[in-house]
Design a binder for these strands. Structure first.
Lengths: 226, 226
DNA sequence: TGGAAATAATAGTAATACTACCATATTTTT
DNA sequence: AAAAATATGGTAGTATTACTATTATTTCCA
């Protein structure tokens, strides 16, 4: 089973396929680590070029700008989550069990099994938590959306919404609940680490189990109401 | 009753009180309109200076940088929401009614009654929706938090959490639910406008009633479960 | 009316976000 | 194996951003 196929990001994101060359792969591998360290705002192509012993101009031949590189990272991540969900639910029938599995995956609680890529998934997840909103909270959002670049994220939410509807076909807000859950799965760990008074979870780093429990109780309550 | 008193932002946010001078007031009034138009990334002090017929250097005497100006706007907004909540709930006893009122205010569905300020609240609300996450999704978050600059936001969430606990003292996640609701009240309208497939609400602009209904059902389900 | 403070006007710096150009290395095609 | 195409490196350069500094002028207010 080749994992690469299913997590291949949209090629429109990049000017040329970064997985097809040594330099491209270095841009992705090291880019993830560096953006995680510096944060999106402080991250620059110049710094990345220094880190991988290349030049700014060479990186620009792969990605128009750092926002596209961020989108590439996020696309990789959402495709990976989607893939994990698909595989995990392959032989599950009970929607309740499926929902629990989805939440476990979303909060990163599922140990990522070995795959062929050497992406630093922990760094990638930190990027998703801290930067993913910046993918769409921009004036370019409609333009980017019209190029289908949010498709993996929207598809994931849609598939989650379908499982919610399976559990309770009468529920009126499956898509809103799906996007709320996906967003909350990023925000609550961030709050836990930096603004703990916005949560009810102890400061123990990586207390993702608590976040899962909260989300489970929220989802099942919403889907079971009245 | 003087509204100004209760929505005075933390003075540590600004180098000098912008409400105390004509230039300062222009920075705030026009700054809100311009940041709403351009978005946080494209907004610059230089552009604002041109718009108010002043200079970059003069604006820097009021705010260290544009991130602090954004924080000032958000602080104003959260103080305003907190004030609206306080006044609205003054003679309410039923926690269920209080919760409905809070959600109505959060989604901006409550017509803002006349107050003495001439702030463009519609533009301010657009800024909150599109930019508020950028206040804390930065590597400076711990530094800013240690200066208490998120206090109004955290206080608001805390007060909402208290009302949730009033409704159901046994509920285990009042703070997480409060921050989830406040965040979702911003994200769902954004999705509605730009990524409608992430919601279950028709594209009719300003369909805040639907967002309120979704949030009400979510909150009451969560607080009433089992 | 004199002094302090605020603002304007101008200049300047380092960094960012690119674009352009050319030489060289590598890969692909024939 | 030679020729052609493509990828990369190296260097430069531009416009904009995010500031800081200096001095002159205006406004405030005691």
């Amino acid at each position: 089973m080749n994992l690469q196929i299913s997590i291949q990001p949209n090629l429109k994101l990049a000017l040329r396929d970064p997985e097809a060359s040594a330099l491209g792969r270095k841009i992705i591998r090291e880019g993830i680590v560096l953006m995680c360290q510096l944060g999106y705002e402080q991250f620059t192509f110049k710094k990345l070029a220094e880190a991988i012993d290349s030049t700014e101009a060479s990186i620009y031949r792969y990605f128009e700008n750092k926002h596209r590189l961020l989108l590439y990272f996020l696309t990789w991540y959402w495709n990976y989550v989607e893939y994990q969900c698909t595989v995990s639910m392959h032989n599950l029938n009970d929607p309740a069990v499926k929902i629990k599995k989805i939440i476990e995956i979303l909060t990163g609680g599922l140990p990522s099994w070995a795959d062929t890529s050497d992406i630093d998934k922990s760094a990638l997840q930190d990027i998703v938590i801290a930067e993913s909103s910046k993918a769409y909270l921009t004036k370019e959002v409609d333009d980017i959306n019209s190029k289908q670049l949010f498709k993996p994220y929207k598809d994931l939410c849609h598939h989650i919404a379908i499982v919610f509807s399976e559990y309770n076909p009468k529920y009126a807000y499956p898509h809103s609940l799906a996007s709320t859950v996906v967003e909350t799965a990023q925000f609550q760990p961030f709050f836990m680490a930096h603004l703990p008074s916005l949560t009810d979870f102890g400061g123990e780093k990586g207390n993702t189990r608590k976040v899962s429990e909260y989300l489970e109780s929220l989802v099942f309550a919403a889907l079971s109401a009245r």
